[in-house]
Amino acid sequence: MSAIQQRKRKRVVPIEEACIGCRLCEVACVTEHSRSKDPVRAFKEENPRPRPRNVLEERGHESFSLSCRHCTEPHCVDACIAGAMVRDSETGRVIHHPEKCVGCWSCVMNCPFGAIHMDRERSVIYKCDLCPERERPACVDACPNRALILIEVEE
């Protein structure tokens, strides 16, 4: 195993028992992926408004925040016809390049988790990028009940 492969890779794990369904993770995601990084401006001024890349799945009192799993063998990367979806072998992140995306939705259909979302207006997909500019993803930092935790896995 090479040194690169032994690196620890970040994963956001939703904890269903702790999720209170507040959707602050979504607010945090929108804010982090806005131009202003300010929640008020992101929601009220920015057009188009950034969309949350994580979605609260909810049934009754059970809920969890779903976002891209950054799979080791991602189906979305295999399915991408344009080379827009790639897996960074160093960080383990599955990264989407919107400038290459042709909006064929192949990745959306192939994602077993439903973690890839369609932006129909711009004909591109959007998904979790694990907040490359932050030490911890915004959703993890915003969760008031430790229902999203950041773990590092060795691969």
Binding site: C22, R23, L24, V27, V40, F43, K44
Partner: peptide, 9 residues
Amino acid sequence: IGCQVCLRQ
């Protein structure tokens, strides 16, 4: 911002 966190809480 109309996020409705208050409504859910």
